[in-house]
């Protein structure tokens, strides 16, 4: 049975790829992922905003209280060198590459062209096999048009692509008026892959403290429906490879995504919840199903139920949703 797949020009031994998560901050975990069958690893994301704010914060913290009181003109040693940018991340890439044989895909998270271009180049030089550009942003400025924002995103992709020779995948959210148009524009800007979709952290209200709190929730299998639809719609309509993320917990989830058209399936919540060894479980479930249903390769099933190749292309479009609601109402 051939589980191998093509993603971003890389031949992967299976479609099982742990997506960006804190697990990959630890080199041992990356090795364990490889041992558990991961075909590649997307490293944890470096956030543009975070780096910027960390720089300010460190600067202010180290200056706090200094040159004020004669016995304590400072409170910290003055290090000769500070890695306040991405140096540590680059080193991490190098180490991950040295410690494993699978492709390592760093992830950067930013929405402006600024310093990211240099950073992308450095990542390439550090030995990354590909790059995932995560457009993680929640625009809230009422004076900024959607068109402006969309252009900014596409410009970032184009700029990063122009800067590096390694493949670039773009991880996006589904919140566009016309996602098909955006996918096409990202494709035209040179993205080698689209990762569908980003799950934004949704804050919650804590009733006891009356505070708005960040609430990280694991995805549920239901979450896979949205990316599955768009992967099915986009399959073979754009050049870029499609990666599925969100809600992939079992081997059957992988199969559905691949059948919709995904080249790879990204695993996050399921690994966080069940541990790295769960990758092996999913792989086994995948093998068992394929064996039982006499599939011989991933390539064989990819896109077989995409909008292009399924029996009922309309099933992936909006009208279907209305019908589903209608059915639900009848049952109620």
């Amino acid at each position: 049975m051939d589980l191998s797949t093509q993603y971003l020009g890389l031949r992967l031994k299976s479609p099982l790829v742990p997506s960006a998560s804190p697990l990959s901050e630890d080199l041992d975990n990356i090795k364990r992922m490889e041992d558990a069958g991961a075909a590649a690893v997307v490293l944890y994301s470096i956030f543009e905003e975070q780096i910027r704010s960390e720089r300010y914060e460190l600067h202010h913290a180290l200056n706090q209280g200094t040159e004020s009181y004669p016995e304590a003109l400072s409170y910290f040693p003055d290090p000769t060198q500070l890695f306040v940018g991405v140096e540590d991340y680059l080193k991490h890439i190098e180490r991950a590459k040295a410690a494993t044989t699978i492709p390592i895909i760093p992830s950067i998270n930013g929405c402006t062209s600024g310093g990211w271009i240099d950073f992308a180049k450095q990542i390439e030089q550090a030995g990354a096999d590909a790059l995932e550009l995560n457009l993680y942003n929640i625009p809230t400025n009422g004076d900024q048009s959607g068109a402006d924002i969309e252009k900014q995103y596409v410009d970032v992709v184009a700029a990063v692509k122009a800067a590096v020779t390694i493949p670039v995948a773009v991880k996006v959210s589904p919140f566009f008026t016309n996602f098909a148009n955006m996918a096409k524009r990202f494709d035209e800007a040179g993205a080698n892959g689209l990762v569908l979709f980003n799950r934004f952290y949704q804050p919650d209200i804590e009733l006891e403290t009356l505070e708005v709190v960040p609430n990280v929730m694991y995805s549920t299998p239901m979450a896979m429906r949205l990316p599955m639809r768009w992967i099915a719609i986009l399959f073979e309509r754009i050049r870029a490879d499609l990666a599925a993320t969100s809600g992939i917990h079992r081997g059957t989830d992988v199969i559905k995504m691949v059948m919709a058209g995904a080249s790879v399936t990204m695993l996050c919540s399921s690994v966080l919840r069940h541990g790295i060894k769960h990758i092996r479980v999913i792989e086994q479930e995948l093998r068992d199903w394929m064996d039982e249903h006499e599939y011989t390769s991933i390539d064989q099933m990819r896109g077989s139920l995409s909008q292009k190749y399924c029996a009922d292309p309309g099933a992936f479009e909006r009208a279907q949703y209305i019908r589903a609601v209608g059915v639900h109402t009848l049952r109620g």
Binding site: R52, R55, Y56, L58, H59, P79, Q81, G115
Partner: peptide, 8 residues
């Protein structure tokens, strides 16, 4: 300030 980052 260079070691503290370009922003600074």
């Amino acid at each position: 300030y260079s070691k503290k980052g370009d922003e600074i």
